[in-house]
């Protein structure tokens, strides 16, 4: 069957057999940002956004995304033009092995879209589906707060080129 969706802002279509899950479809087509962690919706490393809401793509049928807008980490920002969250995650030391990071960033983006200055409890709630084994979450909470502040202050306007040694 033919599957049509908007993927990272572009209209795309895929021919699928039916049982494919969104994670497999994305990875088979070179969108490697979503990771496979548990295949059971428990860890969130496969998270992508569907119509602005983050979901676990490992248990989400590709067919469910038909006619919808899918955003992967590749659509959030690039190395040349990272999103404020991508920048602050790196600056704050919130990235270690990186497996959970794409999914967590999309959850954080969803949070900031609906709650521009989140409190600690909001952040904990918004990221509670994204397990991380490396960081203890401390730096990630900080990174979300710093990004929120930066976006509000308009300094980064959501997107700003990264500068190498700025965090010194």
């Amino acid at each position: 069957m033919k599957l049509e969706m908007k993927l990272n802002g572009k209209d795309v279509s895929f021919e699928i057999a039916g049982p494919e899950l969104l994670l497999d479809l994305l990875r088979d087509n070179g969108y490697f940002g979503a990771k496979r962690g548990c295949d059971n919706g428990d860890c969130g490393s496969c998270a992508v956004q569907v119509d602005g809401k983050s979901i676990c793509s490992c248990i989400y049928f590709a067919g469910q995304a038909h006619g919808r807008e899918v955003t992967t980490i590749e659509g959030l920002g690039t190395m040349e033009h990272p999103h404020a969250l991508q920048e602050t995650f790196v600056e704050c030391g919130a990235v270690q092995c990186g497996s959970c990071i794409p999914g967590m960033l999309l959850s954080a983006k969803e949070l900031l879209d609906e709650c521009p200055s989140p409190k600690d409890a909001d952040i904990r709630e918004a990221l509670d589906g994204n397990l991380c084994r490396c960081t203890g979450y401390t730096k990630q909470f900080e990174a979300v707060k710093v990004a929120a502040k930066r976006i509000i202050e308009g300094k980064s306007k959501g997107r700003k080129p990264a500068r190498g040694g700025k965090s010194r």
């Binding site: 940002g33 979503a34 980490i73 990272p82 969250l85 991508q86 995650f89 790196v90 990235v95 794409p102």
Partner: peptide, 13 residues
């Protein structure tokens, strides 16, 4: 506390 050199590539997928 310089940035992790592979951090941004991880954060952008």
């Amino acid at each position: 506390s310089v940035r992790k050199i592979d951090g941004l590539s991880m954060a952008t997928g």
